[in-house]
Design a protein around this nucleic acid. Sequence first.
DNA 1: CTCGTGACTTACG
DNA 2: ACGTAAGCCACGA
Length: 112
Amino acid sequence: MPKKSDSAFASRIYALLRQVPAGYVTTYGDLAQAAGSHAYRAVGQVLRCNPYAPEVPCHRVVASDGSLHGFNGSRAATSLQRKKSLLSQEGLSFQKNKVLNFSQHRWSFRQL
DNA sequence: CTCGTGACTTACG
DNA sequence: ACGTAAGCCACGA
């Protein structure tokens, strides 16, 4: 549940992300649009300060091309490695830092 | 209110 | 494929 200290925008992002089932990923763009805005970057800021660590799996959010950018407030390769591991456990496949069959595992809020 | 910043995206050379 | 530039929105100082 959203905290009062969270912005309405942030809450929306969290709520949407929570809808994403395991084995699926989404992009910042789609997330933003689903939130009713085009604040791609704002989404990044929100996730970076993600106070709902396990409940809001920020690792299910990838770049528009399915590549893993940052994670856990870090762009370090170690973080990306962990991200890959987590997603791998959810049935996703990886090639370096990119998701295989990305479009296939990509979650679309618009279809809901 | 203004300014700077960012885990972004798209376009261009 | 890669670097740069511009556009974009929200948030904290």
